[in-house]
């Protein structure tokens, strides 16, 4: 079943076009990598799909409902309950411990303190950072912070996880551990994942790859209009 549907998405920042007509379907439980060179519009697409920003034109539908016409409050509620987001630098709340950070989305959704703490510990264990539970982000390594942020993004058991370069700040092995966990959990829970990356090695964790170039989908994967030498060099 289609979870998320984008039709003809267009978005500019002032005079700069970022998306120039993107149409895309994401199925339940499907892991889709969004790749392409720097500045091609990957993050902008992710933000539109997650309802963080509104496209200038085009539609985003979540299970058949037009997300792009919703109020900011309604979209933000959806992001808290059905969506999870994960960025390159975990963006944990520095004053809170790892367990408090991970419990936060549950507390905001109305879960009781004790249940939220238990769930947080379970997720920290799954991501292999149980030992960080009572440590603040400032005293953790980048890899540990990223695992905590991953736990926080998954603790609400979202239907869709939006991850923007989630392993960009990690070494190969830590990045791989975070991704392996993320993919395993997504597959177990039929969570769809939108995985933004510019690395082929990372995109290979997805079921499918969508390649952007200059704000459009590039079906060749190599640039629609990249002129080849054709013997003329």
């Amino acid at each position: 079943m289609t979870q998320l549907q984008a039709r003809g998405l267009v978005k500019s920042y002032g005079p700069t076009p970022a998306l120039r007509g993107i149409t895309l379907d994401i199925d339940e439980g499907e892991i889709v990598a969004v790749t392409g060179p720097s500045g091609c519009g990957k993050s902008t697409l992710l933000h539109c799909l997650a309802g963080i920003i509104r496209p200038d034109a085009g539609e985003v539908s979540w299970r058949g409902h037009r997300l792009d016409t919703w109020s900011e409050a309604a979209r933000s509620r959806l992001r808290r309950t059905e969506f999870g987001v994960l960025f390159q630098f975990g963006q944990l709340v520095p004053e809170l411990t790892a367990a408090e950070n991970v419990a936060l989305p549950l507390l905001l959704a109305g879960t009781g303190r004790r249940a939220a703490r238990t769930a947080a510990l379970t997720w920290l264990t799954r991501l292999g950072v149980a030992e960080c539970a009572d440590v603040r982000p400032g005293e953790m390594s980048g890899g540990q912070q990223q695992r905590c942020a991953t736990a926080r993004a998954l603790v609400t058991e979202p239907r869709v996880l939006f991850a923007d370069e989630p392993t960009g700040a990690l070494d190969t092995l830590s990045g791989e551990q975070v991704l392996t966990q993320l993919v395993r959990v997504a597959k177990e829970q039929h969570t769809s994942v939108v995985l933004v990356t510019h690395e082929p090695r990372i995109a290979a964790y997805a079921d499918r790859e969508v390649i952007l170039r200059d704000g459009m989908i590039d079906h060749t994967g190599l640039g629609l209009d990249a002129p080849l030498a054709g013997g003329s060099r």
């Binding site: 082929p200 090695r201 995109a203 290979a204 790859e209 060749t220 994967g221 190599l222 080849l228 030498a229 054709g230 013997g231 060099r233």
Partner: peptide, 24 residues
């Protein structure tokens, strides 16, 4: 990248990229 037939070259490169991606 040297051959004159640009479409041939493009078709090869796209197919090679796809094969690499699938194996990955």
């Amino acid at each position: 990248l040297l051959v004159a037939d640009v479409d041939r070259a493009r078709a090869y490169l796209v197919a090679q990229r796809r094969a690499h991606t699938e194996r990955l």
